[in-house]
Design a protein around this nucleic acid. Structure first.
Lengths: 145, 145
DNA sequence: ATAATAAAAGATATATTTGTCTTTTATTTA
DNA sequence: TAAATAAAAGACAAATATATCTTTTATTAT
């Protein structure tokens, strides 16, 4: 397994994909998103339902409907997606799963892990979803397998 | 979920526990390890079977038997435990699960993730299992919930 | 109004992770 | 040799993550 759950990987890719399209003013259907990020369509639909309920993306039903993001959503940090899907497990808590573990009562890995976690958190909080668009627009980055 | 699987968390704690006891020349039974690291005994037994098969720890059956570690095992980096249990998922691969992702063809998170992964890997490779013993001996660190 | 479209919701299926229980094998001690 | 001990091995059970399918609801266009 990687750092994030598969669900979270799909969610991040989907959000980037929609953000990219939204800057062009479009709405995107679930089929196109799934194809664009190489994910199972029905499973992604479930994930999108959740992201929509939580207000991370917006959606409209019916013809010409689909998913999109407003300006406010584009300014949200990527950490919101991770928190919504995986919870705060990667940001907080002990690397060895010890509940007591803290600066006062550290586990063997505590200090080293602190730095790494802080770093992940920083990266996820400082980068907004919209931040990646420019590079995607230039075709430097990709979302497909 | 945290950075590592629960299985891996138990494995790391168990290995530290055994290493700690081994420096005193003792062998430790599965019941005592499970109690010492707060893990389900039967499940830990399965994990220990695997670690033994892979040569990360040693074991002896029968009365006065149990688990222990030799000098060579104590010098192994912690990364061996992680690799044995969780594989190389946290060390390599793309944060968003993209197969193609590399320096040449990066995903949006590629560069930031590279640093974090390198850091985790470095920490796991540079610290040997035995390295934590001194602090455990001094009672500074703990393995219990 | 009706038909077509697309997401939302609900139910169900599969795979993986986590956890438990029973039997077998190796070792020691009496 | 027999009994006791402790890990190894195998089978099974529960929980969670991943994935699919069907029905319902909202919206648009005819």
């Amino acid at each position: 397994m990687g750092v994030f759950s598969k669900t979270c990987e799909y969610a991040m890719r989907a959000v980037f994909f929609i953000a990219h399209r939204t800057t062009a003013g479009e709405r995107v259907g679930i089929r196109e998103i799934a194809a664009g990020i190489d994910s199972p369509e029905a499973f992604l639909a479930k994930i999108m339902q959740d992201l929509t309920r939580r207000g991370i993306v917006n959606s409209i039903k019916g013809p010409n409907g689909g998913f999109y993001m407003d300006a406010a959503s584009l300014k949200k940090p990527l950490s919101e997606v991770v928190l919504a899907v995986d919870g705060d497990g990667i940001f907080v808590g002990c690397g060895m799963g010890l509940e007591y573990c803290s600066a006062v009562n550290p586990c063997p890995l505590h200090n080293e892990f602190m730095e790494i976690r802080t770093r992940i958190q920083k990266m996820m909080q400082e980068n907004t979803i919209g931040d990646f668009n420019e590079e995607l627009n230039l075709g430097i980055l990709s979302l497909k397998k």
